[in-house]
Amino acid sequence: MAGPGSRAEFVRRPGTAPRSLTVTPADRRKAARAAALAVGECAHAAGLPPSGGELRLTGDVPVGLGMGSSTSDVIAALRAVGASYGVRMAPETVARLAVRAETASDPLMLDDGRPVLFAQREGRVLEVLGPALPPLVVVGCTLGGGAPVDTLSLPTADVDDSDVRAWERLRGLLRRAVATGDAALVGEVATASARRGQLILRHAEFETLCSVARRSGAVGVQIAHSGAVAGVLFDPAATGLRHRVRRCLHGLRAHGIPTTRTFTTSPTIPAKELLDGPAHRRGDRPAGPDTARRPARMPALRNDEGGLRARRGTPPARHGGGTAR
């Protein structure tokens, strides 16, 4: 999902002790650990003495919903420290340091967009499933009223041979779905995965979510493995897509499930065009700097800072510091 992200700026203080690091906001402890690890790695690579510095973080990823806010902060911090030393770390190095900083990491450091099976506690790719997921339309929502989930307090599931066989079956189905571009099969795998996740998460609205998805002609549902953010998945090639999506939105709201934003997984298929039809170009007035902006049709998840403008990437270091998104 394009939009939400984290931005970090790191300013080195040469001559200070490597552990003399300050971070703003002060509660971003995982990002602070990541910065300390990156200082040692990047200083060695650059042939410079390690030093302390100041890390500043900003962003608009909601916390505690399973959207990867901590990993976004950690990766931004790692890239910022690297930029301040003039070092661009390989994704494999970023993954290794991210796991050390936060125990388990999302694969956000992988920029090529390919779907992978990622060992989150090891920081390595086990399998590249294919070039891209089939295009999907996602109606986003939050369960539990959007309350954050304390993932560290969640119980650990007991795993036996039957679980391993079930996961391997889902892995095979997902591999086939990616190879054949089968959106319905992706939805089947996502729903099965979400259902197994309920053994830990136990969202009260899960069955309601599945029921709304079935009645609106969706291919399945997805739920964050460590939070409350969810989505209803549609095949963009399905007939009557706009009617299906609107029926889904109505059904979710009727059951008190807050909706967030509707988006597509394909950058070449804008959600607005799918839901509103293709734009009419004849007679359109070119947008100028004073053209009024129309409000978005779908509300978006926001934190107190608002906005959905942060983008990923690593611009060059400036004024002895570094930034990363």
Rank of each mutant, 00 (worst) to 15 (best):
G3D: 09
S6G: 08
F10A: 11
R12M: 10
R12D: 05
R12Q: 08
P14A: 13
P14T: 10
P14V: 10
T16R: 14
A17M: 11
T22F: 03
A31R: 03
A32D: 09
R33I: 05
A36H: 09
V39H: 04
A43I: 04
A45Q: 09
G47N: 08
G47Q: 10
G53T: 05
L55A: 07
L55H: 07
L57A: 12
T58W: 04
G66P: 00
S69N: 02
S70C: 11
S72Q: 05
S72R: 02
I75M: 02
L78W: 05
R79Y: 05
R79K: 09
R79T: 11
V81H: 08
A83C: 03
A83W: 02
A83D: 09
Y85W: 11
Y85M: 07
G86K: 03
T93I: 13
T93Q: 15
L97S: 06
L97R: 03
L97G: 07
T103F: 10
S105A: 15
R114D: 07
P115T: 07
P115I: 09
F118Y: 15
F118Q: 14
A119I: 02
Q120T: 15
R121W: 10
R121I: 03
V125S: 09
L126K: 06
V128S: 13
P131H: 05
V139M: 06
C141W: 09
T142S: 14
P148M: 12
P148C: 12
V149C: 03
D150L: 13
D150I: 06
L152I: 06
L152Y: 07
T156Y: 03
A157K: 02
A166Q: 09
G172A: 14
L173S: 11
L174P: 00
A179Y: 08
A179P: 03
T180A: 14
G181V: 01
G181C: 01
A183G: 11
A183L: 10
T191M: 07
T191N: 06
Q198T: 01
L199P: 00
R202P: 00
E207W: 06
E207I: 02
L209Y: 04
V212T: 11
R214E: 15
A218K: 09
G220Y: 01
G220A: 11
V221C: 14
H225F: 12
S226C: 06
S226F: 07
G227I: 07
L233W: 08
L233D: 08
A238V: 10
T239A: 15
G240T: 14
H243N: 13
R247C: 13
L249K: 11
R253H: 06
I257G: 01
I257R: 01
P258C: 13
T264D: 14
T264I: 10
P267W: 03
K272I: 05
L274C: 13
G277Y: 12
G277I: 11
G277T: 12
P278K: 10
A279W: 02
H280K: 07
R285A: 15
P286C: 08
A287C: 12
G288Q: 10
R293V: 14
R293K: 09
P295H: 10
P295T: 12
M298V: 02
M298I: 00
M298E: 15
A300E: 15
L301S: 05
L301F: 04
R302Y: 04
D304S: 13
D304A: 15
D304F: 08
G306Y: 02
G307R: 12
R309E: 12
R309G: 12
A310F: 08
R311K: 06
P315L: 11
P316K: 02
A317Y: 00
G322V: 03
A324P: 00
